[in-house]
Write a protein that binds this DNA or RNA. Sequence first.
DNA 1: GAGTGGTCTAGACCACCCG
DNA 2: GGGTGGTCTAGACCACTCG
Lengths: 245, 245
Amino acid sequence: MLDNLANINGLPQYIRIRESIRERILGGELVRGEKLPSEDELAMVYGVSRMTLRQSLADLIDEGLLYRKHGVGTFVALQQFARDHTVLRNFIETSKEEGLNVEEKLLDARLTSAKFQVARALNLEEGDKVVCLKTLRILEGNPITIHEAYFDHVKFSDFLEGNIEELSKDLLAYYESKGYKVKRGIQRLEARSIENDIAEILQIDESTPLLYKERTLYTAEGIPVEFLYCYNRGDLYSVTINLTT
Amino acid sequence: MLDNLANINGLPQYIRIRESIRERILGGELVRGEKLPSEDELAMVYGVSRMTLRQSLADLIDEGLLYRKHGVGTFVALQQFARDHTVLRNFIETSKEEGLNVEEKLLDARLTSAKFQVARALNLEEGDKVVCLKTLRILEGNPITIHEAYFDHVKFSDFLEGNIEELSKDLLAYYESKGYKVKRGIQRLEARSIENDIAEILQIDESTPLLYKERTLYTAEGIPVEFLYCYNRGDLYSVTINLTT
DNA sequence: GAGTGGTCTAGACCACCCG
DNA sequence: GGGTGGTCTAGACCACTCG
């Protein structure tokens, strides 16, 4: 009765209810700090059992949109955190959503042999064949990031024969199309001095520090999919991270 | 029947079952990639309903220890991710657990007026009174990090009258003791060139880049608790982050 | 078709908080 | 004491996967 966009056929009830509540919060119908009706009441309003209703709330609490107080009630959080946990997002799409002018330039794409660090991360043997994909990302005309991604040539043997320019724009989608849906990752960040070749590509001098990143991506099963080196201009690039206890 | 440490009285069953399963995995009884018994069977073994058992599994799946395949079964993940989502941890305790020699030196603790950025982060007005706590962290004899934390003097008025040396060793515990349990946070990382005063304290020259961090901590309700500037030696310090879709 | 996880119900009792 | 969320049950039917 309260749903609109959330009322798509085929979706489980708890998802439709969750989205309905989310819309009521984001739309301003439920104000920050405001108490929601009790679980019993919400379950009645939405016409489901309390267990089902709690499944809806659980997701929103995990996202930081709601919080519970035992014996008191459920409330809309004062501070809105990440709407979802999506830390892994496609760089180009994300930047475009923010209205930024983004270009991506293919620097190199080739078959090579895995060195120690790459092999270890991808659970391969040193010397095994891997695809190396190097790209430069340009934000509002400024070269800002060099990406150097490695992935198993056995799992992704058709990459180099495909439309590399196109495929490299959304590697996550490409991995998924091959049956490797990325679910988790581990990344490590460092501040580094810049090296000559990197300085040249990013068109900066050697006094600018570099935000250096290493990242490994995995499926839900824990299969490593990609290992990445990433060199970011320190003065133009920063990384924002949501933390939870 | 299978529990031991997980069999503490007073704990909900789903937590005891969860910990029992976790122990069976970490203890090697359940191997990576191995299929668990079906939910029906596990529920019977543990003597609970299937819904209760699923609550146990949900936590372990969220942690990345297990994954499910619809119509197939539940499996132990191949790669073990963070055992829990605890990204927020006490630096000193964590380092000690890793067997590292850690010292913390109090540099400054005083009452001051919130400048623009601090005021905005803590939801205060510019000029409102805040406590500023500056500490130096020394790892294995190397000065590695300068922490500059700010928190509301109204919420935490007794800090400066307390044993500052002691309290500053676990600020999260101090905040919690005042009714502000930290649940979430947002942090931002940058690579920066070093400034004179920082270089002097960290005993490094100005060619070493700095891993600069800003962080705001919040309660589950979304109340801001602490705003922090953090200056880390780039060549000795790196930040590891777990990502999820 | 058999087995698995995904969703859902209509109750129940408990622990916690507040007036 | 009354209202709230926390935990738990004993079923049910559906959707998916595989042989």
